[in-house]
Design a protein around this nucleic acid. Structure first.
Lengths: 214, 214, 214, 214
DNA sequence: AATGAATGAGGTTTCATTCAT
DNA sequence: GATGAATGAAACCTCATTCAT
């Protein structure tokens, strides 16, 4: 069947990983059976143990793989001298878009937090290197340094604020949709949300007399 | 009601529910074995099925019980004529405190969202009746009506903003602590967080020329 | 609620027995749960043990009750001097009708045979006293004695022949309907069957030149 | 097929099926525990689910297997020009012998009928293809066509008559032995029974002027 | 006479994992 | 590299029965 002499080095491994990413992000560690993974990957069960060693091991690989993927994401670069309002908007929109287009990452992150981060240690520091966070942090740092953000705001908490404002639209979709009566799966509703976050952040952290010089 | 000497009529049921609340909020539905529940409750396993019928049924009861509990929470009433800044601060602090002191509720809510709200329907509308949300919503509505909040802000999204800003400190404790390098379990860090949320919200949604009239 | 001073002596017992007859005849001993019986009887579970002692005991009572019921069945009396053809037809039709109208008896009998008669001993001799069999046997005996039935036929086997010819229409309804392609639940098909049994028996066991002497 | 040294490819499956046939035919579906099957087969319990999927599934396989077995039975071929009396006797004796030597089939059939044929659909049409029935039916058809059987007898009902006459000796062994006082487990009694059935059938369905021509 | 709570053994089924080829 | 057979522990659930009132 294959053209080369030996089988593709580990197409099997890749298939397993792909299947596992989908399942673990959807149902969490406990909610997935090894049988489901191999079924979805069309692969023999034994292979999980051959390539990974255990269910937990493949789960950790899933975490790592997803984190690493994020490392390679291209981010909208922000012009250093752009008006700060614009910069903030770009940041918020980028992050929000990132969450919207990487549901697996979002879900896995939430599962991990609920599981008290049990597997995080194992996943190494991939997490702390996510460029998303790094870029966010850098831009905020610069804005603070240049005095364009009201003094008194701590960058780290600002980061958390941003994340919280965006993430909630994904982490609590179901309960909020139900209790507030706003369909958070609708793109139009999300767009309204983004706009408001942008406005809130701009008004909230910038000096009232906005573009002082330049 | 029963005056009898021995068995409190269904202390057993209560014990089971209590144990289940603790375990399910800690580990989620799939992470808990019925055996753990009965062990923690010091009760015969059969009783789970006697009183609830199935593991899923007791889980749904847990959801309902916790939601109902919230219904009965006493909230700091906000004086109608207090300065709006103060009112906003009270709101934020109340909600934050509520999350901090009801970890089981927070966790169960997050589990449910990850599970795509599968059991929410069963739990009825208890959720939408949580006075927390209602009070938040009312105060915000009033502030908007009275023109004390910049026009253009939608109350429902404001509510989501508030929730997001606070909840993130609990929902992503582990990953944030790790990737940002800020120990979100420390009370002092949390206090910093609250203060910044308050400031962000006050600056963000109120007119710049603050106390316009009155 | 009740008018008299004490509760109806054992309406409860009767209700249990009735429910048990229905269930055991439908599903056999192993197929029925005590809970089903009490549910159908609208009675507390404990009562089974109060009145009968065990599941097996109530099952035996069911057997006995059904057998005893049969004792009281009114049978078409056969005129002693009627033509033997007519007598045979009456016998066959009576027996067939009896099976058709006492499905519970038929089923319980079959369950018992499949269960290798384990509970029969316990049920006492009620069975051997069923007047159905007795009447059949008497008539056949008489016919043989009077030489109206070909010599060489043993009464006991004749009885078995009759039972076999009729019972098969009930004991193997489902498989025969399926494999022969004849709906044995249809009254019209059954009537055809009876007619043929009658004819077969008349031709089969009577001398060709019928009323020889006398 | 496998030449390998150790595990016959699915001797395990065969062993399970064999054990299940014995047990299910003896005690019926509800009367058998999966544990009993695996114990009798000297096999790990998990294997039942590996090979069959569920208790019900292995039961259906048992039905199918037994039915299929019957398909392969060698039947005494009847000479086409033999005297019809002889032919009838051969038929009856073959069928009776078949029942006597295939108690598992008989029992399973009866269990199924008591269970209202719930699993029959699943077992496919194997049942209707049993050559036993086919041969019986063919011979009877021929005899009717050639006018050697009294007109008025319907072949399908004749088939039922034959089955009923024979089957009763097996289906109601226990109750009949008890209530009639004839040990139906004794070969001598059975032989008497066969002889009488043969006589009854010959007399019953053939024209009185027996061997017309030839 | 009647009840609901309680029990422990055992029911079917699923799990993650290892063996032998 | 890949496979299907095999395993024992543990999962959820049901059973017939007894306790205490």
């Amino acid at each position: 069947m294959r053209i080369g002499k030996k089988t593709a080095p580990s197409e099997t491994r890749a298939r397993l990983l792909l299947a596992a990413i989908g399942l673990f992000s959807e149902k969490g560690y406990d909610g997935v059976a090894v049988d489901e993974i191999v079924a979805k990957a069309h692969v023999n069960k034994r292979m999980v143990y051959h390539y990974f060693g255990s269910k937990e091991a493949i789960y950790r690989e899933v975490l790592r793989e997803v984190y690493v993927r994020l490392t390679k994401i291209e981010l909208a670069v922000v012009a250093p001298d752009a008006p700060i309002e614009e910069t903030l908007e770009t940041i918020v929109r980028s992050y929000f878009a990132f969450l919207a287009t990487n549901p697996e990452f979002v879900q896995l992150l939430l599962w991990e937090n609920l599981g008290q981060g049990r597997h995080l240690a194992a996943a190494g520091d991939a997490l702390s290197k996510t460029p998303i966070l790094q870029v966010l942090q850098q831009v905020l740092n610069r804005a603070v340094r240049e005095g364009r953000i009201s003094s008194g705001f701590k960058t780290k908490h600002l980061l958390i604020n941003l994340i919280g404002l965006c993430l909630i639209y994904f982490s609590n979709r179901y309960t909020l949709s139900r209790s507030i009566g706003l369909n958070l799966h609708s793109p139009r509703v999300l767009e309204k949300g983004i706009a408001q976050i942008v406005r809130l952040v701009q008004h909230g952290i910038l000096e009232t007399s906005r573009p002082r010089h330049k």
